[in-house]
Nucleic acid binder design. Structure first.
Lengths: 278, 278
DNA sequence: GAAAGCAATATTGTCTGACAATAGACGGCA
DNA sequence: TGCCGTCTATTGTCAGACAATATTGCTTTC
């Protein structure tokens, strides 16, 4: 019965989510760790069937239930099946179900009370800016709409964040930004390049000096994940994009907020075009 | 031994947090509910000792541990005491501890692995825009700094969100906005007024037509919670503020994005002054 | 003496089964 | 009809056990 638990879960996990394969080194220098086994997936392409090797049961369960909720299987206000039911459905213990539900409660997707059960919270209370919820949300409507929403959001925050970065960045933060920019230019593969690109934008958010801007990095990561399929661009386009990034880097370095803001706007407009032209 | 559990928890709960006393009606029309007991606290003032009557053990535990982490008791990278230890410390079962930890994991404050334990994630991964995390975060530094950060954030998003609202709002959303604005003017108490004020701004976010802006409402709520102590303003100031709100309402109604944006900027500038003049 | 492999160990992960607390639903009583 | 108590379904909480896992240190071998 133990092995069947995993099986039952897998069966329900068509779109398959993993907990954001970012490297999560627990402590400071926890060394190479021996990643000898299976070289890290080509990345990004996570739709290759259902296999979450290292995921715990409650995490998988939370993903499964969370996805269903965000997808709309259980509209806000609906009372979910009770814990015993989930437990039976997935052939897992009630403890596992409870831990999964607690995770969803922490994301404000659910709330519950004794004798009532667990119900889906109204959408405006969902923490859409949570990494997992965002990932689930990103699958439900078609890519286009999601990307448009994220991109619009970037238009709102990134220019201002960059302007702040130009005013307040420390030398250390500047170094991070510059390095990421440089590595973008020197990247061998598109994937490597995208990684550096992401790091570039996240570094800017951190340099903005406003703690509340940092968590919005998940949006950028998400956007780049979904943008990845669009990035079969020509070399000259890549060069153009690189120049736009360098302009941003330069204006932050020279502490010119307005110029930096304008440079970001240009870059975003370019990205908009890439999306639109598809 | 059962009663001592609660006691042990209470003992550790000096700053005392409750799960955001917002009304949480589970299902559609779940009626008045009989709130006969102890009329809802004067609101906002939550520092009156340690009593979380309706909170479950794991929720309280999560608050307690979460607060400690955000406060800096366990810096990022630190390995926390293990589950057995927490269980002993608070005289609760290991299940309760685990459920609490799962909630914190869901907020990206923690991560864990067998044999290692649970460690505090780096700050840039924390989901600061989560309602609870934000509440914990709001206590650690002094009010001033926190308010300044939130207010700066509002300057970034609210003008743009309002401009979008002016372009895309539905009639229904407009009605919400107008009603909140009206109720602000008619409010009898300051508390009632603040509630309507909050509703006004949240309604605008919802009307912006960008789902990702909605979760930022927690920032506004938080700001108003902390701003409440500042609001012993004179009547003529209140009138002025009301006029500013009405200007926003009008420009959204007439679908003038630029004017709406400008109106919001004015209101925010006014709020800035209120904060600064303290 | 150094390197590689193996065993011991500590911690989270998972399961099971039980009881408590809660509040809605239902029926009985005035 | 309307109030009141009981019944019951569901989450909340507890306890104890075993599994999985990866670090640590020991042992073996070259």
């Amino acid at each position: 019965m133990r092995p069947s638990a995993r099986a039952a879960l897998d069966r329900f996990r068509k779109p398959a989510f993993l907990k954001s394969m970012r490297d999560a080194k627990p402590n400071k220098e926890r060394a190479p760790k021996k990643p000898a086994s299976a070289e890290r997936q080509p990345g990004v392409r996570r739709s290759d069937a259902a296999r979450i090797p290292g995921a715990s049961v409650h995490t998988s369960l939370a993903s499964e239930i969370g996805l269903r909720i965000v997808r709309g299987d259980y509209p806000p206000g609906t009372i979910l099946p009770n814990e015993a039911k989930w437990s039976e459905t997935f052939s897992v213990s009630r403890s596992a179900v409870r831990e999964a539900i607690k995770m969803l409660m922490a994301k404000s997707l659910l709330a519950s009370r004794p004798k009532i059960g667990s119900w889906v919270e109204p959408r405006e209370r969902w923490n859409l800016l949570d990494r997992d919820v965002l990932a689930w949300y990103a699958t439900s409507p078609d890519r286009e709409v999601f990307l448009k929403t994220v991109q619009e959001f970037r238009h709102i925050i990134e220019p201002e964040a960059t302007a702040f970065a130009a005013m307040r960045r420390t030398d250390e933060q500047m170094a991070e930004i510059s390095q990421a920019c440089r590595e973008m230019g020197e990247a061998a593969s598109l994937q490597e390049r995208t990684r550096a690109d992401t790091r570039f934008h996240l570094a800017i958010l951190r340099a903005s000096g406003n703690d509340l801007l940092v968590p919005l990095g998940v949006l950028i990561e998400s956007a780049f994940d979904h943008l990845f399929t669009f990035t079969t661009r020509a070399v000259d386009d890549l060069n153009h994009v690189q120049k736009l990034h360098e302009a941003i880097e330069k204006n932050i370095r020279l502490q010119r907020p307005d110029a930096a803001r304008a440079a970001v706007r240009k870059l975003l407009a370019n990205t908009d075009n890439v999306i639109k032209s598809r």
